[in-house]
């Protein structure tokens, strides 16, 4: 049955008809990303956090004066002397078990070096760039990865909650093009965010070194090691953003994706480390650390299924290198993002 009306027929192809273009979609998605208030606030708060941390560092770190050093040395020496008094009392203790020498029973004398010297008794320590830069880059990578996960999840989760992604399909019906463009924008944004946070860390460390730092020459290979660690930190940030995106796309909800991530990190990984320590080398946070940490990560765990030997049971060592960590994180990311994209391309959308 049909409804027929007498009207002039429109031409099959109309030159004025707008057509979706990948460039236009990419521009629109970049515009959408940078217009998101939540993302703007998150980036702003992150930068404010760095400023605040710098101020706190400036107030709590500092080069000690000669009198500070003298006071700290006096306190350290007093501590060592007190410990030596206790040791003397121990040596004269008549209740020492038979067959145990006084040296074995009371231990060796304590020295100033054993307690870290006078530095341990300083109220203010100077900022040591050589000793802190790489560890700081690692911590910043962890922070930016967590925030990138949130950004990735909300980037697609908000689209699902408002269903604006369905409206977008009225304009660009190729679903893989839509999801691929969103992934591309996220990768770009996460990489920029990772670079921004690592740059913020360098700036913060530079300020601390200039005002409250140790003025010593940096060791050979310092910058190379630091920049490589930071580069891998940026890579981790991108992985985290994509995992957040993939999870939220699978469950179509930002909150659910965050919940799954929380349960995985807090419950699943803790349980695995306690019950199946041999699986630890394949956990995501282990590999995240192995990816970013300079030289990779050496794990030690007790394997209750290892063959029993005559000697003392030694922990098993497992080295998680950058390559293994990178490959494992890539595989997991591809599976999570790919599964979400394939489902999106096939699902009925309401």
């Amino acid at each position: 049955m049909s409804a027929v009306t007498e009207r002039p027929a429109a031409t099959p192809t109309d030159p004025a008809t707008p057509a979706p273009r990948l460039g236009g979609l990419l521009r629109a998605e970049l515009h959408r990303f940078r217009s998101r208030r939540f993302i703007q606030v998150l980036v702003g708060l992150t930068l404010m956090g760095f400023v605040l941390a710098t101020v706190i560092g400036l107030l709590n770190l500092g080069a000690p004066s000669a009198s500070d050093l003298a006071a700290a040395r006096a306190e350290a020496e007093q501590f060592v002397a007190e410990q030596e008094d206790f040791r003397e009392q121990c040596l004269q203790d008549p209740g020492r078990p038979d067959g145990v020498s006084a040296e074995e029973y009371c231990g060796p004398p304590l020295t100033l070096e054993d307690i870290g010297g006078e530095a341990s008794f300083l109220d203010t320590e100077p900022f040591d760039l050589a000793g802190s830069a790489t560890d700081g880059a690692l911590a910043v990578a962890a922070l930016s990865a967590a925030l990138a996960f949130l950004i990735g999840a909300t980037w697609i989760g908000a689209e699902w909650s408002t269903r604006s992604i369905v409206a977008l399909l009225f304009w660009v019906p190729r679903r893989m093009t839509v999801i691929g463009t969103k992934v591309g924008v996220l990768v770009l944004a996460a990489a920029l965010f990772g670079v921004l946070t690592q740059a913020a860390w360098l700036a913060m460390a530079g300020v601390l070194r200039a005002f409250v730092g140790v003025d010593e020459a940096l060791p050979d290979g310092f910058w190379s090691t630091l920049l490589q660690t930071q580069g891998r930190g940026v890579l981790l940030t991108v992985f985290a953003a994509l995992l957040g995106f993939g999870l939220a796309n699978l469950v179509r909800n930002t909150g659910a994706a965050l919940g799954i991530a929380f349960v995985y990190v807090v419950v699943v990984e803790t349980a695995v480390r306690a019950l199946r320590p041999r699986w630890d080398p394949f956990l995501l946070t282990t590999n995240a650390l192995g990816l970013v940490q300079d030289g990779g990560l050496t794990l030690q765990y007790w394997d209750d299924q290892a063959p029993v030997t005559d000697g003392p049971q030694l922990p098993v060592e497992y080295f998680v290198g950058h390559l293994q960590a990178g490959l494992l994180l890539t595989a997991v990311t591809v599976v999570v993002v790919g599964a979400g994209a394939v489902l999106f391309s096939r699902r009925d959308l309401h």
Binding site: R27, A28, V172
Partner: peptide, 10 residues
């Protein structure tokens, strides 16, 4: 509207 227009070249 602008975001939709950008995506479609309007």
């Amino acid at each position: 509207l602008q975001l939709l227009a950008e995506a479609a070249g309007v």
